[in-house]
Structure formats: structure tokens, C-alpha cells
Design a protein around this nucleic acid. Structure first.
Length: 868
RNA sequence: GGGUGCAUAGCUCAGCUGGUUAGAGCACUUCGUUUACACCGAAGGGGUCCGGGGUUCGAAUCCCUGUGCACCCACCA
């Protein structure tokens, strides 16, 4: 074993060793029939780009959960895959071919273009998979899936057809976000907003119309069919429900006055012209009121035919012409500058035109007989109440609920080429939906594709063989945990729940663990354009995978963002090396023991053995508890604390001079089991050490998680004694350090232990040997006649040190300590004299405070009693 | 506009249901070649727990309020 751990030397070989063993696939694990399943599906990374640190964090967390459960004896399946990310991927490729060859997708044509996208997707997927492997993920590669591969295409078609047949999926007209330049609809989250200055015109439709409305878009008013006012607005109360015939700039309109509580009474005149065809909220009002819809603007953002001399103009020309005309007629009451947000296309920044268009929708409110006559929305909301699904952290349940409650029908069609093509065919007015194209002539397939979340919404079961009656589906669904980012609760988590209910009538997962984002050290999002990203593969090469994982797992809690910088990773590299050296010491200086045969004989334990044995078993319990509650950071901190502060700094040091029959076994026992506890956090180095320890005969990845020893709880007294000894040693070191006793090994110590005399006497050798620098130690029961230079008090134990000490410094230090103690005593006295405290506080708290007061008093006496 | 979260040591954060002298890691200071480890060991300094109210015997923790920051949703007719 090298003096320092070199991850490069081990990581690749170890990954191959794991993979070749076949144990990433739980079917190959030798488990009893009763073994429970534990499934996680990897949130499929988009094939748009290689992985970043955020993905590394996902892998660290999920691999931890999977490896932990594998060690615990679960049938642990972690299922890999990638997402075709329809729009995003198509965009990347479109941009690329335009930049490289100056061609658009239309130049290439559908088939050729898709070929290009597929090639791109395949090559990125390859990179992604190799990155994931480098991070050490124990994913079952035999089940690798892609949201657009043949199996998933079949599943998606099946889902579409079934939903259509049950009337959950329908084709309808709706106002969508339309980009006149890209000639495509945009999903709500693909719309961006730009602040701008705009003119707000206040005007009347015509002279005989009773009141005025305000708008920034007069050209759309050609399609108005109503005016909406707030129901509690007294000004318009009498008009509600009436219909007016008006002639607006030469066009005849029928305007009905309706009431809607969303109308802001204080904006403009408080009356809003309703244009159902060119505004989403207007369209929603129109649906409610059953208003007529008049289309004004076409797909090139020009005025349609039938609007006299406005037809053919683009929206800006039309706006000007209408304003001019209204001005001539004296109908403009006011023109003011306001700031508003312009909706623009996230891709080309063109202003978006809301247009009505034929789209496919999932009806989230349709009652489904086989789902207890509940709708998908109702089902998806119920799972929170019934606790069938739990969110970690809990607060995100609210976000999920709020979003669900306001959910409208989900538009699943997209006007792009890359993705699952909609399995619908049209012939004149006929529509056919099916798994295959209809046989007869004259049918034309829908040009559109499905929203990428349609296929990823099916991810938990499409990856397990649905719709076939597959064994995997019975065995591994529902999955146990969905681990993902909080930013896609609405986009993904909610869809998965609805899709799974529809297909399987069950939840897709039992728990949702949400991680935060990985930010740079200044708290900024890592992005390629800013150049502040850290590449996980670079980090792996520089510090090793384990260090990277630790820095992503420790010092972070669920749902919170994580600021990461290299210093943090370096400090975990140091820790990895520490555990390497701890092991190296045991492996080279302590004989191997077959733990199956050699059982620990606790009767022969010394105090230090009992102490380390007890706290190690306590650690197992704590780690299990923390992990089952998703407190990865706390588990990791406890492990680190035990490994470094208890095991290495105390027990290993003690073992160098305290030789007894049990030490050899115990050192092997703790190292062996400690590696198991650490394995989910740092799989590579723990496995590397395990291989050295067991001469390549056993694999840590499939070892058995340690059981808590029943006797471990019986050593309370020994733990107390050991802690006392440790405190004494620390006090001696402290006093020695402050006083700079030189040379260090010429101190004589006199220790007077009252109650603990026997225990201290027994452990004399520890005090002498553990870096206290004591050459002459004298432990007595009673030290009344001794006049020495007292250095420390631990509980009831006094420690005198005799040597070259700096009296002035010691005096100052003591004064400070006295002051501190006096303050404490004063506070405790006051508290205990308070009748209300004594009456109302729980008994154990009062007792604790009393004990503390007594202890402080004794210490104070001791300190004051000394004269120089 | 609506919502959520955060504010604790120089930095990054823990602190679960109110009760230790408020913790850890990093950084900092001093000392140090003892059977693994300088990617190390020993010791130390450093905090009005954002401000202001309240509830309580008792608040970093619960409630109200103010300030600053981050994010999500809606969208401005």
C-alpha cells in the first residue's frame, strides 16, 4: 500500500471489478425470497450536453441510498437512462448546423434532420454514460433505457391510445403561445419576459358606447366579443349582462359586458376588452361565459382577411392605423407610458402572439370510472393527504399541492420534429388514433410530436417493461424513492404521478427526496457561458471520485442549494487519505483475524476496548437512523467524527502500547465494519482497502451491513471512566501547551481522584503514554498535605503538575476561568431560586441544573484555593 | 402581485419536538520528526445566533413585525 491514497490507481479497476461481478443487477444477488425490493430510477439526464456537478450530486445521493440498501440485504435496483429532451435537443442541433453549414432544418427536411439529431443524441449519450461510470455509480446497465428508444416508443404509443380511448386525451382548440418567426408553439416555461415601455391607450369603441377601456394592443380589439369588469365595481354594475352592437373603426362587433373577479379595478378604467382568440386569460373567460371567438391575427402576425383595409397589415402597422383612426374620431381619451412585460420567444426573442390552434390535451379533470371515478388531478392530490407519497423536505408538498390545484388541461403536442410523433392520422374530418397507421389510403399522420414530459412522465414503469405483463414491473414497481431537483416538481414529479395512476392505478414512488442546486463558491449558478462550472471528470482526476462525493453529501441538507469550491473537495481528499492510512497501519502492524471464527471475548476487554466497542455500536445505530431519514450529512459527520477523533486519535494510539488479547480482533472488527458504514459515501477507497484487507477474496459492495451487538449497551460505566481519563489527559496537554513546559518529558504529575480514584489508578498507563509528556506519575486517593502547582480540575479530580511552568500565564488563565465559572454559578443560582422554574420545568432539567451548579461550585473552590 | 426558503465564528454550514458554558469543517495563531498519515499530531483565539416587539420559569429554536438576499408561480390587459 502506498503512503498516500492514489485514486487514479484504483478507481477504474474497481469499477470494472464491480461491473463484471454482475451485482449491479439485483437479479444476480444471492438473496432470500423474502428480501424486499428497493428501486430508484435515475432521473434521465438530457442528451443535450455532458454532465455537470449537479448530476454528480444526484449520483452521489442515489448511489449512497442504493449501496446502503444493497448492504442491508435489499433487492436494490438503480435503473439508468437518458432523456431525449425534445425541444432542447432539437435546438442545440439546429443551432449547430446553422453555425457550421448555414442550413436550417427546413433545408434538410424532416428525415435528414432527424438523422442528424439522432446521431448527436447517441454521441452525447455515450459521453454521459462514460461520465456516470467514472463517478462509480452502481447502476444496472443491463436495463439501460432511453426515452425515445424502440421499447419506450411502443410504451408511449400505447399510453396515448389508451388515454384517447378512455377520453382522457382529446384534440381541441386553445390559445397557445405562438412564435411567428419559429412557426411553433411554445410551452409556458419556454416563454421569457422582457421589461419594456409601452403606450396604454384609453378609448371608447364608438361614440355611442357607454364607457372606455384601456389596452396596449389596439389591433387585437378587432376580435373583441366582451368587456370584463370586476363584479364589485360600482361604476359598471348596471351594465353587467347587457350586449351592445358597436362599430369599431369600421368593423361591427357584438360586445357583452361580463363580470370577472380577476379584473383589477384600479388598472386603466377598470374595464377590460376581452379578445378570446388572442389572449390566454381572455380565452379562459370566454370558455366560462360561452363567448364567440373571432380570429384576427394569423400565423405570420398579420391581420387576417375580413377586416377591410386592415387585412394584410402586420400588427404594428395595424396598431398605428387604428390609433390614427380613433384619434380622428375623437375616441382616444388618454395615452400614457407604462412599463410592462413583453412575452418573447426564449430562442429567437421575437414577440409571442397568443393564437388559437388545434392541439392535443390531457384532460386532468375527467372522472375515470376505474379510478374510483376520480380525475387524474384528484388522484394526484389525494396521495399527499393519504401519505402514499411523502416529500423530503416536507415544505415542497405545498408547492406541489398549489400547482396541482390550479392545474389546467395539459397540452402535450409540440410543433417540433424531434420526439415521439403523435400517433394520430387525419383524413378530411376523420381522426384515427392507433398503434399503427390505418391501412386505407388517404390518411395523413399528425406532423407534431409529444411534449418531452409525456415520455419522461412514464419513466418509472416504461423502464420496467410496461405495457407488457413484465416480471420487473411486479417486482420493482412502485419504486421507493424519486430523487430529483426541486425545480422540476411541477414539470416532472406531478406528471409521473398522474401517468402512473392512469397506467397502473398506483403511485410511481413512495418518497420524493429533493436536492438543491450546486452553485459555485460565490453562490452563482454554474453555467458554461459564465465559465464558472466545475467539471466532475476534472475533479475526479484531480481529487478522486470519493472526495467529490463527500463534498457533495456532507455540509448540505435536503432542498437547500450547495455552494461548492475546490478547497472543500481538497479537505475531503485529506480525509480519504486519513482513512487510507488508518487502514494501512492496521493492515501492516496488526495480524489478520477471521472474524467469522474468532469471536470477541468481551470479558477480556479493557476500559478502552469497551469504550470504543460501545461507541462504535452506537454509531451504527445513529447512521442507520440518519440514513433512513435522509440526513446524509449528519450521518457522514458522525462517521467522520468517529473515524478521525475517536478511532484514529485515541484508540489507535492506545493500541500502540496497550497490548491485550482482544485488541487484534477488535481492530479488525472495527475496521471491517467501519468500511461497510463508509462504503455508501466513498465506494472506491472503501472497496480498495477491503480488497487489501481480505486479499481480494471478498467484495465490500455486497458485504453484510453490521448488526448492532447486544452487549454494547452494557458498558455505560466504562464509557464514563474513559471520558474522564480523556478529559484528564486533555487538561494535562492543555496546561502543558499553554505553559510551554520544556523539555516536554520532564513533568511530574500528581493526581488526586476522589470518587474516581480506582478508575484512574487502573488507567495510569494511558495517562503516561498518550502524548502527555509525563515521566513520573503519582496517583493518590487523597492529597490534603500536598502543596503543588495545580494545573487542572476535572470533575472531582485534581491534577498537579510539577515542572517548569510560567506562573504569570497560569495565573491569568486561572483568573479567566474563575470569572467564567462565577458567571455560570451566578446564573444557575438565580435560576434555581426562581420558584417558577423549579415548579414548572421538568424534573430532569432541574436536577441537571442542580448537578451542574454543584460541579461548578466544587471546581470554583478548587481554583480559588490555590496560592502562588 | 402571490408564495416559499434563507440570515448562527473570517468562509461553508449543523443545531430534529423550546432546557449543554451555541457546535463542526475550512481558514487563522502557537508548538511538534513518538510503531500509519505533514493530504499529519497537540493546543489555542474567534459568536449581541440580522434589527425590534411578544409568548414562556426559560427562545438561536415558537408567534408578530421590519430589513437584506435567493428562488418559485402568476402575469400586467
Amino acid at each position: 500500500m502506498d503512503k498516500a491514497y492514489n485514486p487514479q490507481k484504483y478507481e477504474n479497476d474497481i469499477y470494472d471489478y464491480w461491473q463484471e461481478s454482475g451485482f449491479f443487477n439485483p437479479d444476480n444477488l444471492d438473496l432470500p425470497k423474502s428480501a424486499k425490493n428497493y428501486t430508484i430510477v435515475l432521473p434521465p439526464p438530457n442528451v443535450t450536453d455532458k454532465l455537470h456537478m449537479g448530476h454528480a450530486s444526484i449520483i452521489a445521493i442515489e448511489d449512497l441510498l442504493i449501496r446502503y440498501h444493497r448492504l442491508k440485504g435489499y433487492k436494490a435496483l438503480w435503473l439508468p437512462g437518458t432523456d431525449h429532451a425534445a425541444i432542447a435537443t432539437q435546438n442545440v442541433v439546429e443551432k449547430r448546423i446553422y453555425k457550421e453549414r448555414g442550413e436550417t432544418r427546413h433545408d434538410l427536411g424532416r428525415e435528414k434532420f432527424l438523422q442528424e439529431v439522432n446521431n448527436f443524441a447517441l454521441s452525447t449519450q455515450k459521453t454521459i454514460i462514460s461520465q456516470i461510470k467514472k463517478m462509480g455509480a452502481s447502476l444496472d446497465w443491463s436495463r439501460l433505457a432511453f426515452t425515445l428508444d424502440d421499447t419506450r416508443q411502443k410504451a408511449v404509443k400505447e399510453m396515448f391510445v389508451r388515454m384517447y380511448n378512455e377520453g382522457v386525451l382529446y384534440r381541441g382548440e386553445r390559445v397557445v403561445n405562438w412564435c411567428p418567426r419559429c412557426h411553433s408553439t411554445l410551452a409556458d416555461d419556454e416563454v421569457e419576459y422582457k421589461g419594456q415601455k409601452a403606450n396604454l391607450y384609453t378609448f371608447k369603441y364608438s361614440k355611442d358606447f357607454p364607457f372606455a377601456i384601456s389596452t396596449t394592443r389596439p389591433e387585437t380589439k378587432l376580435g373583441d366579443t366582451a368587456i370584463a369588469v370586476n363584479p364589485s365595481d360600482k361604476r359598471y354594475k348596471d351594465y353587467i349582462g347587457k350586449t351592445y352592437k358597436v362599430n369599431f373603426v369600421g368593423i361591427d362587433l357584438n360586445i357583452k359586458v361580463i363580470a370577472d373577479k380577476n379584473v383589477d379595478m384600479n388598472f386603466g378604467t377598470g374595464a377590460l376588452g376581452v379578445t378570446p382568440a388572442h389572449s390566454l386569460i381572455d380565452w379562459q373567460m370566454a370558455q366560462k361565459e360561452g363567448l364567440e371567438m373571432i380570429k384576427v391575427i394569423d400565423e405570420d402576425a398579420k391581420i387576417k382577411d375580413g377586416f377591410k383595409n386592415f387585412s394584410g397589415l402586420n400588427v404594428y402597422e395595424a396598431r398605428k392605423k387604428i390609433i390614427d383612426k380613433l384619434t380622428d374620431e375623437g375616441l382616444i381619451l388618454e395615452t400614457e407610458d407604462i412599463n410592462n412585460n413583453l412575452s418573447i420567444c426564449y430562442r429567437c426573442d421575437s414577440p409571442i402572439e397568443p393564437l388559437p390552434s388545434k392541439q392535443w390535451f390531457i384532460n386532468v379533470d375527467k372522472k375515470i370510472p376505474r379510478l374510483d371515478n376520480q380525475s387524474l388531478k384528484e388522484k394526484a392530490l389525494a396521495v399527499i393527504k393519504t401519505k402514499e407519497i411523502n416529500f423530503v423536505p416536507e415544505r415542497f408538498e405545498k408547492r406541489y399541492k398549489d400547482w396541482m390545484e390550479n392545474l389546467h388541461d395539459w397540452c402535450v403536442s409540440r410543433q417540433i420534429w424531434y420526439g415521439h410523433r403523435i400517433p394520430a392520422w387525419y383524413r378530411d374530418d376523420e381522426v384515427y388514433v392507433g398503434r399503427e397507421a390505418p391501412k386505407e389510403d388517404g390518411w395523413k399522420q399528425d406532423e407534431d410530436t409529444l411534449d418531452t414530459w409525456f415520455s419522461s412522465g412514464m419513466w418509472t414503469f416504461s423502464t420496467l417493461g410496461w405495457p407488457e405483463k413484465a416480471n420487473d414491473l411486479d417486482l420493482y414497481h412502485p419504486t421507493q424513492v424519486l430523487e430529483t431537483g426541486y425545480e422540476i416538481i411541477t414539470l416532472w414529479v406531478s406528471r409521473m404521478i398522474m401517468m402512473s395512476y392512469f397506467a397502473l392505478e398506483e403511485v410511481p414512488f413512495e418518497n420524493v427526496y429533493l436536492h438543491g442546486m450546486v452553485l459555485d463558491k460565490k453562490g452563482k449558478k454554474m453555467s458554461k457561458s459564465k465559465g464558472n462550472g466545475i467539471d466532475p471528470v476534472d475533479i475526479k482526476e484531480k481529487y478522486g471520485s470519493d472526495s467529490a462525493r463527500l463534498s457533495l453529501l456532507i455540509g448540505n441538507t435536503a432542498g437547500n442549494d450547495l455552494k461548492l469550491d475546490e478547497e472543500k473537495i481538497a479537505s475531503f481528499r485529506n480525509f480519504v487519505n486519513k482513512i487510507w492510512n488508518i487502514s494501512r497501519y492496521i493492515i501492516s502492524f496488526v495480524d489478520r483475524v477471521d472474524l467469522e471464527k474468532e469471536k470477541l471475548n468481551k470479558k477480556d476487554f479493557t476500559i478502552s476496548d469497551k469504550w470504543i466497542f460501545s461507541i462504535f455500536n452506537e454509531l451504527i445505530k445513529e447512521v442507520e437512523l440518519d440514513l433512513s431519514n435522509y440526513r446524509f450529512s449528519q450521518a457522514g459527520e458522525k462517521l467522520r467524527n468517529f473515524t478521525w477523533n475517536d478511532f484514529a486519535d485515541w484508540y489507535l494510539e492506545i493500541s500502540k502500547f496497550e497490548k491485550n488479547s482482544q485488541k487484534q480482533i477488535l481492530l479488525n472488527y472495527i475496521l471491517d465494519n467501519l468500511l461497510k458504514l463508509w462504503h455508501p459515501f466513498m465506494p472506491f477507497v472503501s472497496e480498495a482497502i477491503y480488497q487489501e484487507l481480505h486479499k481480494n477474496k471478498k467484495m465490500l459492495m455486497i458485504a453484510k451491513w453490521p448488526e448492532v451487538d447486544v452487549d454494547a449497551g452494557n458498558f455505560k460505566k466504562e464509557i464514563e471512566s474513559m471520558n474522564l481519563i480523556k478529559d484528564i489527559i486533555i487538561k494535562i496537554r492543555e496546561a502543558r501547551s499553554i505553559n510551554k513546559v520544556e523539555p516536554a518529558n520532564k513533568i511530574k504529575a500528581l493526581i488526586y481522584g476522589h470518587k474516581h480514584f480506582e478508575q484512574i489508578k487502573e488507567q495510569e498507563h494511558l495517562i503516561k503514554n498518550l502524548k502527555t509528556g509525563i515521566s513520573d506519575l503519582d496517583i493518590q486517593e487523597n492529597g490534603e498535605d500536598i502543596k503543588g502547582e495545580i494545573k487542572a480540575t476535572v470533575g472531582e479530580v485534581e491534577i498537579f503538575l510539577i515542572g517548569a511552568i510560567d506562573k504569570e500565564k497560569e495565573k491569568n488563565r486561572r483568573e479567566k476561568e474563575i470569572k467564567n465559572l462565577e458567571k455560570q454559578v451566578e446564573f444557575l443560582n438565580k435560576q434555581l431560586q426562581n420558584k417558577e422554574f423549579v415548579d414548572k420545568a421538568p424534573e430532569e432539567v432541574v436536577k441537571k441544573q442542580k448537578d451542574k451548579l454543584n460541579q461548578f461550585k466544587v471546581e470554583l473552590e478548587k481554583l480559588k484555593d490555590i496560592d502562588f
